[in-house]
């Protein structure tokens, strides 16, 4: 693995373009009367079709960074380009639509909609996009198969195990063919064996569907599978490691 010097980070461009590009991004938020600088000027790019990891101790701003990349938060300063689009300029409705089309999410708490069955959860993003019922059913069924849960299609989340729920979440994140998938500590609530199988699944999906994955994680197993690793500490990028895999 090559490491990059920390002193200054030049603009990083990949020959085939980056999915997400951050320039001098700063995020300050108020906690009560106190202002907290969560991100203090970060610049980097998330490359396409790779497993990119953002790692760092808790309180480092990992989650904030992920929120910014996922377009569910806006930077206080600086610019973020997602798929070539400056997302800082978009209003709330446009950003919501943007997310609906281009960003998939996987949460550590699975975050499935409790009143929907497995396959209804998977088709949910497609409904937001106005996809026809027939196509929805077809794609959701395929996705369900791909994650190996065809038998559980009608089960509610409270009837599924953690691993099964995360599979559904993965299927849900991918069913719309997003530009990239954001996964915040996806294996944190799973035992190591299940977690490993989940990571395998994600890798398989990434290869099959050529999707970009961006993780934040503590899981060493996951970290070992990274193509690129960005280390955050105290709101600043302190390390960037290329994985070496051609992704």
């Amino acid at each position: 693995m090559k490491t990059q010097a920390l002193a200054q980070l030049p603009e990083i461009e990949r020959a085939d373009g980056a999915v997400v590009r951050l320039f001098n991004v700063v995020k300050v938020y108020k906690a009560g009367d106190v202002e907290v600088s969560a991100i203090k000027g970060i610049t980097f790019n998330i490359p396409r079709q790779c497993f990119s990891m953002i790692v760092g101790p808790s309180g480092s701003g990992k989650t904030t960074l992920l929120n910014l990349i996922g377009c569910i938060d806006k930077p206080t300063q600086g610019t973020i380009f997602v798929a070539g689009q400056d997302v800082g300029t978009l209003n709330d409705n446009t950003i919501s639509d943007f997310r609906a089309q281009r960003v998939g999410f996987i949460f550590q708490n699975f975050s499935l909609i409790p009143v929907l069955s497995a396959w209804e959860n998977i088709e949910y993003p497609l409904m937001l996009l106005g996809v026809s019922a027939a196509e929805r059913r077809e794609r959701a069924t395929r996705m369900l198969e791909a994650v190996g849960l065809s038998n559980q299609r009608n089960r509610r989340p409270n009837e599924l195990s953690g691993g099964q729920k995360q599979r559904v979440a993965i299927a849900r994140a991918l069913v719309k063919g997003p530009d990239f998938v954001l996964a915040d500590e996806p294996t944190a609530n799973l035992d190591s064996q299940t977690g490993a199988s989940i990571v395998d699944l994600m890798r398989r999906m990434q290869e099959e569907y050529s999707t970009t994955f961006v993780f934040s994680t503590h899981d060493p197993h996951l970290m070992s599978r990274a193509d690129e690793t960005f280390t955050i500490r105290d709101g600043q990028l302190v390390d960037h490691v290329f994985g070496g895999n051609q992704c």
């Binding site: 996922g70 569910i72 919501s96 639509d97 609906a100 089309q101 999410f105 975050s111 993003p125």
Partner: peptide, 16 residues
């Protein structure tokens, strides 16, 4: 609340 956050992340608008 969490569910609402999830749905919003999924891309549903405020109006939705």
């Amino acid at each position: 609340t969490g569910e609402i956050g999830t749905s919003r992340a999924m891309g549903i608008r405020r109006q939705g």
